[in-house]
């Protein structure tokens, strides 16, 4: 095939398509570049320099074994930076408390969509010096969703499993963990800022890998999508963890409300002990972390003047 000098119409175009990029890819790139430039102008920070500062552990062929892709991530960081600085006008307190090397960032979870993870992530990338690239552990079922399952790994998100967490911490990376999981994010409005039960896994992991735990209180997430009920039968039908009923959707407001986010980073905990200890012994340490975050949340709520200012 392709032998001799046969005349094919659009041969040049076909050749560039074969060798170069598809038109869709070129379109994505040009839009993405524009977003990055806009974000750099608005935020006043060099997005590409921040991305270049990320230290991962590429394999022999130059790929991150977990699928992180700097090209996709710079677009995502640009969008996150706009949300972080302009839309949610996030305030950050005590980010210098995050120690270098391996670390578990443990935070309260809220807001129906995991924008709190995006806010913590962009704070670590844009406000920490040097920039820290946090990975977060995502629900397993996201790996079954088309496009999401491609996008998340490219942004450095990892399917939540103890093996993955252990491997990343041993590579001195930072992980964002929400021990409340789906219980926390799908709370209804009446339970705002009341932490639900924490899982025990994160403390066992910290003990096993001797990782400091940084407690983080996230304020502002609970008001972005107030939910008045959880429609459980529909959630079961769609195999989702919860199906929140959000009044603002009925008024055509699909975007989250522009609440002001406040992130409080606490002093790191450094636990010592046996990772295979009884649940009761682990629960004590979990309770310590949880109550610290709850009191940081309460203090943050007292300090703020309003939801949107």
């Amino acid at each position: 095939m392709g032998q001799g000098g046969s005349i094919v119409p659009f041969a040049g175009w076909r050749r560039t398509r074969l060798l170069g990029e598809s038109p869709l890819r070129q379109a994505i790139r040009s839009v993405g570049d524009r977003v990055v430039r806009l974000a750099e102008e608005v935020v006043g920070q060099d997005i590409d320099a921040r991305i270049a500062g990320i230290e991962t552990h590429p394999n022999e062929v130059g790929h991150d074994p977990f699928g992180f892709d700097p090209e996709t991530s710079r677009y995502a960081l640009a969008v996150a930076a706009l949300l972080h600085r302009r839309y949610f006008r996030t305030q950050i307190f005590g980010i210098d408390r995050v120690p270098a090397g391996r670390v578990l960032i443990v935070a309260n979870h809220s807001g129906q969509l995991p924008i709190d993870a995006v806010m913590i992530g962009s704070a670590m990338m844009l406000d920490a010096n040097p920039p820290r690239f946090p990975r977060s552990m995502v629900e397993t079922w996201t790996a079954e969703l088309p496009f999401i399952s491609t996008l998340y790994p490219r942004l450095g998100q990892v399917v939540g499993s103890p093996e993955n967490a252990r491997r990343l911490l041993q590579q001195e990376e930072s992980l964002i963990v929400f021990p409340e999981g789906a219980r926390g994010i799908s709370k209804t409005f009446d339970q705002r800022y009341q932490l639900t039960d924490f899982g025990l896994g994160f403390v066992r992991l910290a003990l096993e890998t001797q990782t400091p735990i940084v407690p983080v209180a996230v304020i502002g997430g609970e008001e972005q999508y107030p939910s008045i009920a959880d429609f459980k039968p529909l959630a079961r039908l769609l195999r989702m963890p919860a199906f929140p009923v959000m009044p603002q959707i009925f008024f055509g407001m699909i975007a989250p409300l522009p609440t002001r986010y406040r992130l409080y980073f606490g002093e790191p905990f450094r636990f010592a002990g046996d990772p295979d200890d009884d649940d009761s012994a682990i629960e004590e340490k979990v309770w310590l972390v949880k109550s610290t975050i709850q009191s940081m949340v309460n203090r943050g709520l007292r300090e703020r003047k309003g939801v949107f200012i």
Partner: peptide, 9 residues
Amino acid sequence: QPNNPQFLT
């Protein structure tokens, strides 16, 4: 499987 760890031992 979707819930496989990235590297299986």
